[in-house]
């Protein structure tokens, strides 16, 4: 499978209170199409920084970031916006839907910023809403939806531009366990359909769904284990699907 995400010796340093914080300290990694990675690590390990970099919300201090073969670490602000709207899908912990917009309007936002005509964007948003089972609630506002429904809207929004990579930041952090499973099932389906998923979490059973778990500590990759390694390590071989 082709490599869609490649970080080459990436550093991200912040200046905080006169001290340099090494949020990422020489990270190199490759994600291929269809990869499903969970990123774990204690707070301050650089998870969020990594996700922001991968999400083109931030630029590395040093190193290269190749997304779909193009070096995005040198792009300017507008070009990064373009990359975000065309190649990336975001799913956040707190859903991050815009409250004054309806479900369908929230879903079509990335398309609108891509420059898709309003009519096409609307049609695509309708398809997406139908796919996440919310075609009955197109004109509802986020506040009129349950948490699980809101996250489904967010997932539809993340998929509406057919992105290369889906970036999820604790997507189930605000949900109860039943809804959590439903949302994670959706991630499984996305992965099966060939989407590259990078999911930050601190919950073991969420990370457990991913095929690889990437452990970060102090801005460095400590180890990458496959789900088999993990099952073996935790003595759960042959466990849940």
């Amino acid at each position: 499978m082709e490599v869609v995400v490649e970080l080459v010796d990436v550093y991200k340093h912040y200046l905080m209170g006169g001290q340099t914080v090494r949020a990422l300290d020489g990270v190199s990694l490759q994600f291929r199409r269809g990869d499903y990675y969970a990123v774990m690590g204690p707070s301050g390990s650089g998870k969020s920084t990594l996700l922001n970099l991968l999400g083109c919300l931030d630029r590395p201090t040093q190193g290269q970031y190749l997304l779909g073969g193009t070096d995005v670490s040198t792009l300017d602000d507008d070009q990064l916006s373009g990359v975000r709207s065309s190649r990336l899908g975001f799913v956040f912990q707190s859903f991050n839907l815009i409250p004054q917009l309806t479900v369908v309007e929230n879903i079509e936002i990335p398309l609108i910023y891509q420059g898709v005509s309003p009519r096409q964007a609307r049609a695509r948003a309708h398809e997406m809403a139908a796919m996440v089972g919310l075609s009955e609630r197109l004109e509802h506002r986020p506040t009129q939806l349950s948490g699980g429904q809101q996250q489904r809207v967010a997932i539809a929004r993340a998929l509406t531009n057919d992105p290369l990579v889906i970036l999820a930041d604790e997507p189930t952090g605000n949900l109860d366990s039943v809804t959590q499973h439903e949302i994670m099932d959706m991630f499984d389906v996305m992965s099966r359909d060939g989407k590259t998923i990078i999911l930050v979490t601190h919950e073991d059973d969420v990370a457990h769904r991913a095929r690889h778990v990437l452990h970060l500590a102090d801005g460095k990759i400590v180890r990458i284990e496959t789900s088999e390694d993990r099952r073996r390590r935790m003595g759960l071989a042959g466990g849940t699907a």
Partner: peptide, 17 residues
């Protein structure tokens, strides 16, 4: 925004091809 619970039979999904 208060997260709620919703009964949900299964994950409807689609092919991305």
């Amino acid at each position: 925004i208060e997260p709620g619970v919703v009964a949900w039979a299964s994950c409807p999904w689609f092919s991305v091809t």
